[in-house]
Design a protein around this nucleic acid. Structure first.
Lengths: 168, 168
DNA sequence: TACCATTTTCAATATTTTCTGAAACTTTAA
DNA sequence: TTAAAGTTTCAGAAAATATTGAAAATGGTA
C-alpha cells in the first residue's frame, strides 16, 4: 500500500473510532495526523491536509492541548506556531486514561457516594435494589480506579509484563 | 435523600455519563432504570417513568438486547413482554467489554494490520514515522486485547485480587 | 505609532443524531 | 374470521453537535 493512501485510511478510521468513543471526529483526526507526522505542523498545514476551516483547527487543537495530547511549539524568529503530538503510544494511552478518570470517573464516584444513603425502610424491595445497585457500581468503580492508577503510574513493560504474566 | 429523587438523579446522570462514552442517552437511561428496578418492566412502564415515546423505548430496548444487557421475559397467560437487566455489575462490565472489543477493537486491529506494510524507502522519515506509529498502536492494542480477554474470562474476585495484588 | 502576520472567538449555518407518533404488523383468543 | 392487545417500523421533526468564516484580538517589527 502507498503511504498517501495508508495515511488517508488511518486518519479517517481514527476519526470514526473516536466518534464511537464520544470524541469529536475532527479532534481525533488532528491527533492522528500529528501522530504520523515526523515534524511539527502549523494550523495552515493541518487545515490543508484535513480540508477543514481555520476555526475548527484552532478549537480542536486547543482541546487536544487541554487533554495533554498535543504541544505548542514556537521557532525563535517566527511568529507562527507549530504543533506536535507525543509519539509514545503508552504515554498517549495513560494520558487519556488520566484525563477521562478525572473528568468522568471521579465525578461519577462522587455522585454514587451521595446516592448511597436513602431514607426509608431498608427492607423495602425498591430501596433494597437501588442501594445494592449503587453499592455494586461503586465497588466496581473503586476497583477500576485503583487499576487505572496502577496503569498510569506504571511503565508499560512492567505493567503489561506483570499483569499478563498472571495467565501462566 | 428520598428514593424518588435519588432514582431521578441516578438515571439522569447515568444517561449523561453514557453520552460521553458514545452511548445513546436514552439507552443508558433505560439500562439504569432496569438496573434499579427489582421487577421486570413493560414498555409502557418504561415510557412512563422516563417520559419517552413508545418507538424510542422499543428501539433502544432492542439495542440493549443486542448488547446482551437486557432480557425479554414473558409471563405465561399474558401477551405483554417484560424486560429485565442483569443486576450483577461485574457481569454487566464484562459484557460491555466483550461487545466493545468485538465491535471496535477487533476491526481496528484488522485495519492496523493492513496499514503495516507501506511501499517505498524504509529510511524516508514520513514512512518511518507512519510505520512506527502503527506498530506502536498495534502493540498496545494487542496488550489491551489480552488484558480484556483475561477480564472477560475471570471471576471478579480472582481478577481484581490478582491484579491489584501486584501493588504490594 | 502604524502595519502586517497570525491566532482566537463566536454567531450563523450545516450536519448528525435522536425522538416521535401514527400506520403496519403480529399474536392470541373468542 | 374478527377483534383486541400488544409490538415494530420508519419518515419526518426536533434536538444536539460540529463547522465555517469573517471580524476582533494579539504579537511582533519598523
Amino acid at each position: 500500500m502507498k503511504l498517501t493512501e495508508a495515511k488517508q485510511q488511518f486518519i479517517s478510521s481514527w476519526g470514526a473510532f473516536g466518534t464511537q468513543w464520544g470524541i469529536n471526529r475532527t479532534m481525533a483526526q488532528i491527533h492522528a495526523l500529528l501522530l504520523i507526522s515526523p515534524d511539527a505542523l502549523t494550523q495552515d498545514e493541518i487545515m490543508e491536509q484535513l480540508s477543514i476551516s481555520r476555526g475548527n483547527v484552532n478549537m480542536n487543537i486547543r482541546d487536544l492541548i487541554g487533554w495533554g495530547l498535543v504541544e505548542r511549539q514556537t521557532v525563535s524568529g517566527e511568529r507562527k506556531e507549530y504543533f506536535t503530538a507525543d509519539k509514545d503510544i503508552w504515554k498517549v494511552a495513560t494520558q487519556i486514561i488520566k484525563e477521562r478518570k478525572k473528568r468522568e470517573l471521579d465525578p461519577m464516584m462522587k455522585l454514587l457516594g451521595q446516592l448511597e444513603n436513602i431514607e426509608g425502610d431498608k427492607k423495602d424491595k425498591d430501596i433494597k435494589q437501588f442501594t445494592e445497585t449503587i453499592k455494586g457500581i461503586k465497588k466496581l468503580g473503586g476497583n477500576a480506579d485503583r487499576l487505572l492508577d496502577l496503569m498510569i503510574k506504571a511503565e508499560e513493560n512492567w505493567f503489561m509484563g506483570s499483569v499478563l504474566k498472571i495467565f501462566k
